[in-house]
Amino acid sequence: MTEQRHVTRRGPDGSARSLRESAFEASTSGYSLMDLDFVILDVNAAFTESTGISRDQLVGRQAFDVFPENPGQTDDAPARTMRQSLERVISTGQRDSLHIHRYDIPDPTRPGAFLERYWSPVNIPVLDEDGALVAVLQQVEDVTDYRDDLVRILGYLEQPPAESSAETSRRFVEYATTAMAHSSLYHSARREVEQLQEALTSRGVIDQAKGILMGRHRCGSEEAFLRLKQMSNDSNVRIRDVARALIYQASAPASPPAAGADAEG
């Protein structure tokens, strides 16, 4: 997510304001600057591109007038949810994120029709030099194309694996939704999310292997992990794979005696 920064270094034209305006316009994230009554003061090119509505049609209008609710989506109360997020920013002075938020937008080619859209909005307080809240900057990413992946990641919270803590799961979901929301980084972020998920799975495998060693050697968790680590070092095999081998060994059925073993005895 973007962070607010005070620009102190002046550009070649001597104007820090010019630098900020250029960065605002050049950003690949959509931005809408609103006053405290949610009247749109300015938008950047990415915002107009993602909504299909020109700057002239947006600036000076109340956000909830220019983006009315889709009557078919009223039960979800998207406008109320968004308004509550904006009001939290005003009341707390802190940024507020909605992660994944369905908010259909008017179809510019078909009057009265709507386009289904999913967004990852972040509402950010804008302060003046005295620290007073004067506006709200809304950053939006259109995540419609990645909605299914994001929903699956959020579903991770609903059924957290037994081997991972709730805090670990929460951090995983927060990171994944934030990273994958940026479409320009989608593919690399997806790989990172898969690596995080694999790390959580590996933790569970290692915990199971530690349990086996604790029972086998009647030792504590710390000693079991040291034993597991030593086995990994001795065999030059990753600790996760050693853990999996231990689990397989412990769960595999006992092999039948070799043919003729009784006779030889």
Rank of each mutant, 00 (worst) to 15 (best):
D262V: 09
N44S: 09
V173Y: 02
A199T: 10
G72V: 06
L86E: 04
L127I: 07
P78V: 02
C219G: 02
L150V: 03
S85N: 06
D56Q: 14
I153W: 00
M214Y: 04
S164V: 15
P111T: 10
Q249W: 07
Q4I: 12
G72E: 14
S15A: 10
S50E: 13
S235G: 05
V7L: 11
A79T: 07
A162I: 06
E87W: 03
G11T: 11
E25Q: 14
Q73N: 15
A113V: 01
L33F: 06
I90R: 15
F64M: 09
Y186H: 15
Q4N: 10
V126I: 15
A166N: 04
L98A: 08
E129V: 09
M1F: 09
R203T: 14
V126M: 07
N233H: 10
Y103T: 02
L36V: 03
G60S: 10
H182D: 12
I247P: 00
A23V: 10
F114D: 05
G112K: 04
R152G: 08
Q84T: 12
W119V: 00
T81A: 13
G93H: 04
A176G: 15
Q195V: 09
A176S: 15
E167M: 10
I53C: 00
T92E: 07
R203K: 13
G11C: 01
L19K: 04
Q62P: 08
V151M: 14
Q94P: 03
S32A: 15
G265P: 02
R152N: 05
A189K: 00
V122F: 02
L154I: 13
S255W: 07
Q138N: 15
S165E: 05
Q4E: 08
D130Q: 13
Q84W: 01
S165L: 05
A181E: 03
P106G: 06
V7E: 13
A261H: 13
D104N: 11
V66F: 06
Q230G: 05
D37C: 06
A162N: 05
L86W: 09
D145G: 07
I239S: 06
T2G: 12
E194F: 08
Q84M: 14
R170G: 07
S232A: 15
D207C: 02
E264Q: 13
L196D: 12
S22Q: 12
L226E: 12
S255F: 08
P161Q: 01
R170V: 12
Q208V: 11
V66P: 01
P256V: 06
P78I: 00
